[in-house]
């Protein structure tokens, strides 16, 4: 069963169309919800967490509609983008009280809050007031409340905001860990490398429409308008170009400095098959093979811009 299913979902606020006839499915593991600011990421999060009702279509999480479905909300966690605290509250209190709201008994909520705070590395500061926290600490506490009640589906809206490099690395690892536990983790971000650090599965949104969803490389392979570029550094770039130029899928070849040659091909798989054979030839002296546009950034740029 898919964790999230959107069937022809539209959502508008007055005259503003936030989502326009959106269809996609998300399975288990980590999925990146990607798009520029105002693309509709937070609206999808709101619809999935029962904060909003679709204006048209049906959005389902774990096979059920989330609107007023309180039994289902127990299985969902949300880490919102905006700050959500009382400044005089301590980090522990914040997580504890919100965990109580899921229906846990005081004892169970205390245990769950302590565990989740420990997982985000805030145990030593959990009894300090939130007003004394840095932005990154606040973000961690907010993250802790989202999974304290052990949800099956976790929505993280821009979870890396304000985190320092160390904090980012720890949270990346935590997200990966949650994904490995079998939870569906949906991470929204407009920062591409953040998403790329945790997953290769994306849903790309722009102006309320889904532009692409699936594995980044699969999505990239479908973009025919932009040939794949592969840069090879070797001792004999011209010889290598001669070997490959006959390929019917080859669109263009460019020579660069330091023995670099960039091939533009419309069929990356066929190109790599041929490259594998040539790599074995010691006369060519291949030092590196690198595809600058086989990443999220390139996919994003091709589809959004």
């Amino acid at each position: 069963m898919n964790a999230i299913t959107f069937e022809s979902v539209s959502k508008w606020y007055g005259e503003v169309v936030a989502l326009n006839n959106v269809d996609f499915t998300i399975g288990t593991g980590i999925t990146g919800l990607l798009g520029p600011n105002g693309a509709g990421k937070s609206t999808i999060m709101n619809l999935c967490t029962g904060q909003a009702r679709p204006s048209k279509g049906a959005g389902k999480v774990l096979g059920e509609s989330t609107w007023c479905n309180y039994a289902l909300l127990r299985r969902i966690g949300l880490c919102p983008e905006r700050e959500n605290y009382y400044d005089d509250m301590t980090g522990f209190e914040f997580v504890y009280w919100l965990t109580r709201c899921t229906g846990m008994s005081p004892r169970a909520a205390r245990k769950a809050a302590l565990e989740s705070i420990e997982r985000v590395g805030m145990t030593s500061r959990m009894h300090d007031p939130i007003s004394a926290y840095s932005r990154g600490m606040r973000q961690r506490v907010k993250l802790a409340q989202s999974f304290a009640h052990s949800p099956d589906v976790l929505f993280l809206d821009e979870p890396m905001t304000g985190l320092d490099p160390m904090g980012r690395s720890a949270i990346f690892e935590l997200i990966r860990e949650l994904g490995r536990e079998g939870k569906s983790v949906i991470v929204s971000s407009h920062v591409l490398y953040e998403i790329e650090s945790v997953t290769q599965t994306i849903v790309l949104i722009n102006r309320g429409r889904v532009l692409a969803h699936g594995d980044v490389r699969e999505v990239r392979a479908l973009i025919d308008a932009h040939p794949h570029s592969v840069t090879v550094r070797c001792a004999e770039p011209r010889k290598l170009a001669t070997e490959l130029i006959g390929d019917p899928n080859m669109v263009n070849v460019k020579f660069g400095d330091d023995g670099a040659v960039t091939f533009y091909t419309s069929d990356a798989n066929a190109f790599y098959d041929r490259m594998n054979v040539l790599l074995a030839d010691p006369a060519l002296g291949v030092r590196s093979v690198h595809s600058p546009d086989d990443n999220l950034q390139a996919v994003f740029e091709y589809l959004v811009r």
Binding site: G50, Y70, L72, R74, G77, P80, R82, N84, C101, T102
Partner: peptide, 18 residues
């Protein structure tokens, strides 16, 4: 109003709280 100002309604209603 404090819950509104601190955006807490968003977190409250993402929990199974009617």
């Amino acid at each position: 109003c404090n819950d509104y100002r601190n955006n807490l309604l968003e977190v409250y209603f993402a929990k199974p709280l009617t």
